[in-house]
Amino acid sequence: MEYILSFVLLMIGLYCVTTKKNIVKIIIGLNIMEYAINLFLILIGYRQGGIAPIRTPDMSLAYFLRYSVDPLPQALVVTSIVIGFGVLALSVSMAIRIYERYGTFDINEIKRLKG
């Protein structure tokens, strides 16, 4: 069920990227897609009623292994968020520059390169 939710989110993002004309909205769409994937990664490692994957000294190994969620996807998500942030920063700065040059945010107007 949760997986379906993240897929719905992914599709919403994809819809936004493909159909919206405003490049700011396109960037937002990209971010929605990214977060859908992040959600998906988290869900892979999640288990019902799990605890954070931090082993405190008073915790037995068996207990930890039984109840903790998978830590690896969380590490991935952290990295993925950083990458997403980099892309976001670059794309937003680019959007500003594009607005300076073209005077519009409409992606259909930004078509000098063709053929």
């Binding site: 892309v87 794309s91 680019m94 520059r97 594009i98 073209y102 000098r112 390169l113």
Partner: peptide, 9 residues
């Protein structure tokens, strides 16, 4: 910029 943005998306 245009090319870069298309590539980026």
């Amino acid at each position: 910029l245009e090319a870069s943005f298309k590539y980026l998306v």
